[in-house]
Design a protein around this nucleic acid. Structure first.
Lengths: 112, 112
DNA sequence: CTAATAGTTAAGTGGATGCTTCAGTATTCG
DNA sequence: CGAATACTGAAGCATCCACTTAACTATTAG
């Protein structure tokens, strides 16, 4: 989990992911739009592969990279579970406040 | 965006978030289940607040922290957009392969 | 007032990160 | 073959990160 969020926490790596969403790419294709050196791109690639977000294989002298969306969905699930909990909590809070409101109302209702 | 994913990339910080999903908590309450020093917790809290995921205010000598789920949903949106793109891409690829399959099939179909 | 509680600040440390440059190694083209 | 291409590895460097300890400032309780 740590590694996935860490992988997503860098703008260059997110740009690489975005590029790969259009289809597989070589290392140099990934590097082209970025303003960093090729070795730096390779290092980012290591991070992405280490997190499981990207997969790559080498054929001849070119390494082709592509997305492995399972890791992404793991991260997505973590967040959305938390959001769901939060919303549930808000619901419970709402019910509680409603009940309180009712009680206060009946308390305030002057007993005939 | 960087800061949100970075905030989520640490297990202690995610534990703090999980604790806060049960309701507001003081700094020491956040620290109790963690095996790190209080100042370390405060530093994590700074990171969480800097990312917008957590909000806090001090009353007397106790600082109360609570979740601010907007930042979380920002991160969730980033990921789910990418997953959606990926699925769309898979669909397009599927269509393409279907077409290819049709063509090959009609090619192979012996002209009477 | 004194002591306990809750948190804050500051300084330091070891290790990771992101980046560079330079020097390789394969692979493919002419 | 020699030259261009596509990476890969290693070293170095500044900065950041997570964490610590120690000293400090409120605030509240006895």
């Amino acid at each position: 989990m740590d590694v996935v969020f860490h992988a997503l926490s860098d703008a260059n790596r997110r740009a690489m992911i975005d590029r790969l969403l259009d289809g597989p790419a070589s290392v140099s294709e990934l590097a082209r739009p970025l303003s960093i050196s090729l070795p730096a791109v390779v290092q980012h690639l290591h991070v992405l592969e280490g997190s499981g977000v990207v997969r790559s294989h080498k054929e001849g002298r070119v390494r082709t990279c592509e997305i492995e969306p399972l890791a992404l969905s793991t991260a997505e699930r973590w967040i959305s579970e938390r959001r769901a909990m939060w919303e549930e909590r808000l619901d419970r809070l709402g019910e509680f406040l409603d009940e309180q409101g009712d009680e206060r109302q009946s308390k305030n209702r002057r007993p005939r």
